[in-house]
Simulated assay, not measured.
Amino acid sequence: MVEAVKTADAVQGSWVYRHAPAHFRPYLKLARLDRPVGAWLLLWPCWWSLALSITGPFELLHAWYLVLFMVGAFVMRGAGCTYNDIIDRDFDGQVERTRSRPIPAGEVTVRRAAVFAAVQCLIGLIILLQFNWFAIAVGAASLLLVAGYPFMKRFTYWPQAWLGLTFNWGALMGAAAITHTIPLYAVALYVGGLFWTLGYDTIYAHQDKEDDALIGVKSTALALGTNTKPALLVFYGLFTICLIIAGSLANLSIIYYIGTALAATHLGAQVLRVDINEPEACLEVFRSNIAFGWIVFAAAIMGQLT
C-alpha cells in the first residue's frame, strides 16, 4: 500500500489527514469521510421524513432513530462510494478530480476495497435491523437502485435522476420507521427530493464536464450545458412545491411554510451564485446544501411543535 494522498475535493483541514492513522486513511477516503457532504445529502431526507412523522411528544425512541439514521447514512454512503469506486476505477483514473481516489491512485487494491465495502454493508444491515419489519423491507428495496447507479452514466445523460431516486429513499424510510406505512407526505417528499438532487448533482457534475466529454461519461451537466441555470430554477421550484405539498399533507403549522420560504430563498441564491465554468464555485455551492438541509429540518420540527 502506498502512502495516502489528499483527494482533490476533500474538506480543507479534514481530520482524516490530520489525525487518522496513515494505514486507515485510504479506507476513510474510500468512505468519503474526508468530504462528508454526500452523507448529509443522504441523511437529510431521512431526518425530514422523521420530523414530518413525529406527531406526538418527542420520545427517546425518536432520538434513537435520529442517531440510527445518521450512522446509517454515513456508513451506507461509504459503502456505496466504495462500490462506485470499484466499478468506476478505470474512468476515475482518466479524470483530473478523481484520479487521486484510493483505487486509481494505487493506495488500495480492488480486493481490499471489496472487503471494506462488505464490512460497511454488514454494519448497515445491523443498523437496518433495529427498525420495524416494514421499514426493513423498504430499506432493503433500495439496494436495487444502489447497485444500478454506477452504470447509469454509461447509458444516459440523466444519471443524476437515478441518483435522486437512490439518495432520497430515506424520505420513505423515515416515515416507515415511525408509522409502519408510507404516507402521502413521504411520497411527496421523495418526489421533491428527486428534483433537489437533480439540482445539486448537476452543479457537482459541472466540475468534471470536460473530462467526462473526452472519456464518454454522460451527465446532466453535459446535457443541459448553458441551459443549466434555467433548469436549476425548474428543479428547485418543483422541489419547493413538493415541500409545500408534504407539509400540507402532514398538517404542519404556518411556521413550516415560513421556513420553506427561507429554504427556497437559499436555493435561489445557489442558482445566482454558481458559476458552472468554475469547479471551485460549483463545489462550494454544492456543499451549501448541508446548511439548506438544516433549514428544512428546523422548519419541519417547528411546524410540528407550533
Rank of each mutant, 00 (worst) to 15 (best):
P26F: 01
L198M: 15
H62W: 09
N289P: 10
A175T: 09
A141D: 12
I295G: 05
D211G: 11
L125N: 01
L267S: 00
V11G: 00
T166R: 10
S288N: 05
T55L: 11
V110G: 00
H266D: 15
R99Y: 04
L43N: 06
N289C: 12
W15D: 06
T166G: 04
A261W: 04
I276S: 00
F155H: 10
G193T: 02
G268T: 08
L61M: 12
L43P: 01
L249N: 09
A31S: 13
G192E: 08
W44M: 15
F134P: 11
L144W: 11
G78W: 03
W169I: 04
A176F: 11
A231T: 07
A141V: 09
V119D: 00
I203Q: 03
T260Y: 01
S142Y: 05
S219R: 10
N251R: 15
T82F: 02
G170F: 02
K229E: 13
G72R: 13
L68W: 13
P102M: 09
G193Y: 01
L222E: 02
T202S: 13
L129T: 15
D34R: 04
A175S: 13
V146W: 03
K209N: 07
A141K: 10
E284I: 15
E280Y: 00
I127L: 14
G216M: 10
C121E: 02
A291T: 14
I123Q: 06
G38V: 13
I86R: 06
Q160G: 07
D208L: 13
A114L: 13
G247F: 01
Y65N: 11
A10C: 13
A105G: 09
N251G: 03
Q270L: 11
A171W: 08
I258A: 06
A31L: 08
I87V: 15
S142P: 07
R154A: 09
I255W: 10
I178C: 05
Q304V: 07
G268D: 11
R273A: 14
Y190K: 12
L145V: 15
A300K: 05
G13H: 08
A114H: 01
V2E: 10
T197S: 14
S49C: 10
V11Y: 08
T202H: 01
S248C: 12
L163G: 09
A22Y: 01
A299N: 02
I54F: 07
Q270P: 04
Q207V: 09
V11R: 05
A141R: 11
A63Q: 08
A213M: 04
P21W: 09
I255T: 12
G56Y: 01
F131G: 06
A205Y: 03
W40K: 03
R89M: 13
T228L: 07
Y65H: 15
P102Q: 14
A205L: 06
F286K: 04
Q130C: 14
T181K: 02
N227P: 04
A231I: 10
G193N: 03
L224Q: 08
R287N: 14
A140P: 06
F292S: 05
C46D: 08
C121Y: 08
T55Q: 12
R154Y: 03
F286W: 02
C121K: 01
A22M: 05
I301D: 00
P26D: 11
L43A: 13
T98A: 03
L41D: 03
A263C: 09
C46H: 14
E280Q: 14
D88M: 13
L129G: 04
G56S: 08
L66W: 12
F195C: 08
L68F: 06
N227Y: 07
I244A: 12
